[in-house]
């Protein structure tokens, strides 16, 4: 699906091919997952994803268009937390299913340790998708260690829960 003329006029349209290829290689997300959407770049550091029939104004200049998708100009592009939650269900690789204590750590922006059995679908150091009860919570950074690995929570501060009060289960 092509971008509307209004979208083309309002913002820079991005060639999605390299990004979709990267997401397929790292996470096994099929590019068809993104059918019906267009990648755009309203600012400098972030690529956004928006519905292809979107018709924004050119003036006032859009601040954001759709959902943040990838942070670029890093060694590896980083999938946004919003995009991970939205599209993470389609991932098959570099996905870690967590237990309640690990998920709680992730959501309160603390590192957690992953057991070797949890890393069977991981290909090595780098970004991983952190899941809990089938829901993608966001993006972690996996550092393999002798037994298992350390997962750093990449959850933005604004998404983080308060470690003093947030619990995943009622006692």
């Amino acid at each position: 699906m092509n971008a509307t003329p209004e979208l083309q006029q309002a913002v820079k349209i991005v060639d999605p091919t390299p990004y979709f290829r990267y997401l397929e290689e790292r996470f096994g997300i099929p590019p068809a997952t993104f059918d019906g959407y267009v990648l755009v770049q309203p600012g400098r550091k972030k690529v956004y994803i928006v519905t292809a029939d979107h018709r924004p104004p050119a003036r006032p200049r859009p601040r954001t268009i759709g959902l943040p998708f990838l942070r670029i100009y890093l060694k590896f592009p980083k999938l946004s937390t919003a995009a991970a939650q939205q599209f993470g269900h389609a991932a098959t690789r570099n996905v870690i299913d967590t237990d309640p204590a690990q998920a709680e750590a992730f959501l309160t922006r603390r590192d957690f340790h992953a057991r070797p059995t949890q890393l069977t679908r991981c290909t090595g150091r780098g970004y991983v998708l952190v899941r809990y009860q089938g829901h993608t919570l966001g993006v972690g950074f996996l550092v393999p260690e002798d037994a298992g690995g350390r997962v750093e929570s990449m959850l933005p501060k604004s998404w983080a829960r308060d470690p003093d009060s947030f619990r995943l289960s009622v006692e």
Binding site: A10, Y37, I49, V50, T51, H54, P56, P57, A58, R59, P60, R61, P62, R63, T64, I65, G66, L67, P68, S80, T81, A82, Q85, Q86, W159
Partner: peptide
């Protein structure tokens, strides 16, 4: 971002003077 909305553009402008060409 939290609700996963893919059809919203945000703009920063005085609403009473919002450009007519939009």
């Amino acid at each position: 971002e939290r609700l996963g909305l893919l059809n919203v553009t945000t703009t920063l402008h005085d609403g009473a003077d919002f450009p007519l060409e939009s």
